[in-house]
Simulated scan of single mutants.
Amino acid sequence: MMQLQEIWAWFRSPIQFPGGISIEPLGVIELILLLVLLLWGARWLRRSTRILLSRRLDPALAYAISRIGYYVFLALGALIVLQTLGVNLSSLSILGGVVGVGLGFGLQNIFSNFASGLILLMERSIKVGDYIQIKENGPHGEVVHLGVRYTQVRSNDNVDYL
């Protein structure tokens, strides 16, 4: 009985880190459990949304909406998890702004491709199975996969272009 109390006391005792930061081992376990639940919930939401919307909407549009919901759920869930664990999010706002500007410049091309992928999925101008030409006198082939980040086109020579 005494060993259990000692173990529990260790889990509840804060470990001091430089800068006045103290973390309890129980808090780390709680963080891991909450993140696992968040990922599980986000995947369940994505799958359920896609199945439900595919019955009434085009599968590509249902896929796009389910993906957007997935990312929004993950972002909001991460903020809620951090707030639950006692992280002061207002102190992270300045750091988030600086990091956001840096990432915005550094990842501008990736964000552009992401936005283009969302537009293609939502407008449904290209569908899986369509035969397209990428540029004038450029590669052409059948659309094999249509995603948020890239579109996979397979040429007549079985060469895949992303």
Rank of each mutant, 00 (worst) to 15 (best):
V36E: 02
A60W: 12
R46C: 00
G97N: 02
V98E: 08
I94L: 13
Y70I: 00
L53M: 01
F114R: 06
L57Q: 07
A115N: 11
G77V: 04
R43G: 12
V128F: 04
G100F: 05
A60S: 13
L74W: 00
L76H: 08
L39K: 03
I110G: 02
I94S: 12
R50L: 04
G106D: 11
R55K: 14
M122D: 02
L121V: 07
L121Q: 00
L121T: 05
I110K: 02
L107A: 06
A42T: 14
L89S: 09
A62L: 01
R124V: 15
G129W: 10
S91T: 15
Y70E: 00
D58F: 10
N88F: 13
K135C: 12
L103Y: 06
G69L: 12
E30W: 05
S93T: 11
L37V: 13
L37E: 08
Q83K: 07
A78E: 10
F114M: 11
F114L: 13
M122T: 14
K135Q: 15
M122K: 10
Y63E: 04
L45Q: 06
K135S: 15
I29T: 08
Y71I: 02
G117Q: 06
I32Y: 05
E136T: 14
S93K: 10
V128H: 07
V99I: 12
I65Y: 01
I132S: 10
G86K: 01
I110E: 11
L37R: 00
F73G: 03
L35G: 01
P59T: 05
S112Y: 13
I68V: 11
A75W: 13
D130C: 09
L76Y: 05
S125M: 07
A115K: 13
L34S: 04
Y131R: 15
L57C: 07
V36R: 01
M122C: 14
E136W: 12
F111V: 07
G104I: 14
Q133H: 13
G117M: 04
D130A: 08
R124D: 03
L53T: 05
P59E: 05
I65T: 07
L118S: 03
G77F: 04
I29R: 00
R43M: 14
